[in-house]
Amino acid sequence: MSWRMPAETAPHERTWMAFPREGITLGAEASEREEGYAAWTAVAHAVAEFEPVTMVVDPTELGRARRMLGSHVDIVEAPLDEFWMRDFGPTFVLDDERPGVLGAVDWVFNGWGAPEWAEWKVSAEIARFAAAHVGAELVSSVLVNEGGGIHVDGEGTVLLTETVQLDPRRNPYADRARIEAEMARTIGATKAIWLPRGLTRDYDDFGTNGHVDIVATITSPGRVLLHHQADPAHPDFEVTRALRAQLEGETDAAGRALEVVDLPAPATLRDEEGFVDWSYVNHLVVNDGVVACGFGEPEADERAATILADAYPGRRVVTVDARPIFARGGGIHCITQQQPALPNEETER
């Protein structure tokens, strides 16, 4: 077997999501909960403009999900506690030696390092559930990892973060060599580019400790979009400067020097919790489109949409207000997980 995670820009069969349910992430007040339901629904409807969406729904939320999602989204029922599908769901892979075979990597999920507040043991079973639902071969891993902790170019390159995969709360006995060997076995990565850290807010109690999918993404082989904080008053000003300097000196699996393109942050620096991690990098590429994060700043949102349209030629950019999602700890990429399309005979020829 030769498993390979395709680039997000490769054709999709569908996108997977998980519908919110009551708990610490959704919010204590009725207004907070309604805001969360509405934000997840808006993303699902935006994705459904381009490709099928399958939504995993906890039994307690079936009525609400059917009412809000309507006929645009396929609903499957399974128990949930958390609803960040990117992180606990499967990482879908293809086998280049068997073109009709879909695989699903089942990482170990421990709630981003098993913090005291996290509820995760139920959703940790969803990768196996989703794999069985679509008939994918299960690729079991003993590595604690989340889908938001990796980005690939589909040609052997993977972006990782030292504070995620080497986090002692996740993988206390791992080193770089072991992580890289497991990335090669499960997703076909032959070259790992290790970022030293992620964005500042991501190290708060409710953060992921440095997920790459809010910092940088590979838009095409040899080209990286990097979050750019231009205001020296924000601690990510220094963080993103250092990351740019590092990435400019890196090469990918094919030996190409990386072209680094800045994706500027919105102007807002703080919310009631402190410095924000609002990032346009946390978008989802879909068939013929891009579902982008919006932050209620027309000029900045439009600038980001223009950069994304240039990064993904021929795709239509749709912007969805991501502030309610970021207030709960992530963004649009964090709540979605693409399932790649299997190559057909025409592709093979």
Rank of each mutant, 00 (worst) to 15 (best):
331 G>S: 07
314 G>W: 04
286 V>D: 02
303 R>G: 06
282 N>P: 08
311 A>H: 10
301 D>T: 00
287 N>Y: 00
315 R>I: 00
342 L>T: 09
280 Y>R: 11
308 L>K: 11
328 R>C: 14
296 G>Q: 13
284 L>A: 08
345 E>H: 11
310 D>H: 12
328 R>T: 09
310 D>A: 15
324 P>H: 13
288 D>N: 07
306 T>P: 05
295 F>Y: 15
278 W>Y: 15
317 V>G: 03
334 C>S: 00
323 R>K: 08
343 P>F: 06
332 I>Y: 12
324 P>N: 15
325 I>C: 04
328 R>L: 11
319 T>I: 12
323 R>V: 12
307 I>D: 08
325 I>E: 03
278 W>E: 14
338 Q>V: 03
332 I>F: 04
342 L>N: 09
323 R>G: 08
294 G>S: 08
336 T>V: 02
345 E>F: 10
326 F>K: 10
339 Q>W: 01
291 V>T: 07
334 C>P: 00
283 H>Q: 08
278 W>N: 13
291 V>A: 07
310 D>Q: 14
319 T>D: 12
337 Q>P: 02
345 E>N: 13
342 L>G: 03
313 P>D: 01
307 I>N: 05
343 P>A: 05
281 V>L: 07
338 Q>I: 10
317 V>D: 06
323 R>H: 11
312 Y>L: 10
338 Q>K: 14
343 P>W: 06
321 D>Y: 14
330 G>I: 10
300 A>F: 03
306 T>D: 12
325 I>R: 00
338 Q>P: 09
326 F>L: 14
281 V>T: 10
